[in-house]
Simulated assay, not measured.
Amino acid sequence: LEMLTMWGMSLPQVATTLAAALVGNQAGLLSDAVLNAVVVMMLVTAILGPLIVRQTARSLPVPETELSTEAPESDWQATTDRPFTIVVPVYNPRTEQYLIELAALIAEYWGGVIKPLAIANAQSQMDSPRMNRVFQQRESLLATAAQLGQSLNVAVDPLLRIDNHVAEGISRTAREQKANLVIMGWSERHTFTARLFGTLIDNVLWSTHCPLAITYLRMSPRKMTHCLVPIKQFTAAEAHKVQIAIAIAQHSGAQVTLLHVTPRPPSTHREMALHKRMRALAGEISPDIDLQVRVHCQADTAKAIVQEAQFCDLVVMRTYRRRSSTGDISISDISNQVARQLNCSLILLGEPRSNWLHQASQ
């Protein structure tokens, strides 16, 4: 198969052959009949080569490398001088409660603090009636967030900031507070790319220094019973997704399923290694948490995730921030496909640009 694939890749004779034949014909070294034969050969090989590669490359065996079972080193660690800090921008009363509940579960898991953040757009006159109304609205949102946090027995430190740009205000505050995580939400999903990643969350996702959890919560995180976490790579960023699901499961007793999708059936040895690697991502967890690991064999990753999520309350995925040719943030194709088809809650975890550049270089 390897020889056939290589032969198929080297078979097309187009550019150099055609140029040499034209020069030879113009110089009188090759007849018109030979030139026509070269053109026919060029067409045949240009069509036949890709067809051969397409048929043979699918069946090429993929070498199975040894997978380490050691857990990746995570930077989500609270210290004695700085607790695990979660910044939660509050600007939509419809999503505020679920956001605070999610932040409270994560803060409880890490022994951290929630910092609800309200941004007031700067005005030319700070004593204007409009500025006073904005301040009152933001203070009301922060008061509600503080009450929710206190009722959930977590430390709450509300923040009110004046800034010219909301997205920059969120990113700057997160940096100033040395936040470990920013949690934001959106209420509409049918125009996912246009509405979500073209506006506020677009800019925060691109500029924040820490992971950003973009959430669409259809129910209270405290009532979820089954969380699905697709696993692609075995890195610290993947471990962050697992830790969010475990933080939810620790309170509600939810089942957490880690799913790895592969296009070809793995050997028994490799499947066992994959199971160990996925469990290593979870680290040391309470025996009360029902952790399941699955290896799903299917070429269409998005379809496999949607199938597994049919009976789940939450799917936790990862998204990559990259600039498109138009300058906008583009979401990965798999995340986009899954988000459009899911009927349950969704969390997309965006990692800082420095993190995934570092992983790509390794």
Rank of each mutant, 00 (worst) to 15 (best):
M41I: 09
L43H: 09
L43P: 13
A46I: 06
I47C: 09
I47P: 07
I47F: 14
L48W: 15
I52H: 02
R54L: 07
Q55H: 13
T56N: 03
T56M: 03
A57N: 10
P61N: 01
V62T: 05
P63A: 00
E64P: 03
E64N: 01
E64Y: 00
T65N: 10
T65G: 15
T65F: 09
E70T: 12
P72N: 07
S74L: 14
S74A: 13
D75I: 10
D75C: 11
A78T: 02
T79G: 01
T80D: 13
R82L: 08
R82W: 09
R82G: 00
R82K: 15
R82Y: 03
P83S: 05
V87C: 05
V87F: 08
V88Q: 05
V90K: 10
P93W: 08
R94V: 15
T95G: 08
E96D: 14
Q97R: 14
Y98P: 03
Y98T: 10
I100R: 02
E101G: 06
E101R: 12
L102V: 06
L102Y: 02
A107V: 00
A107K: 06
Y109C: 04
Y109E: 08
Y109H: 15
W110K: 15
G112A: 00
I114P: 05
K115R: 15
L117K: 08
L117V: 03
L117Q: 07
I119A: 02
N121Y: 11
A122V: 12
Q123R: 11
S124V: 13
Q125N: 11
M126L: 11
M126V: 05
M131R: 06
M131T: 05
M131F: 12
N132P: 00
N132V: 12
V134L: 15
Q137K: 12
R138L: 13
E139F: 07
S140K: 14
A143K: 12
L148R: 10
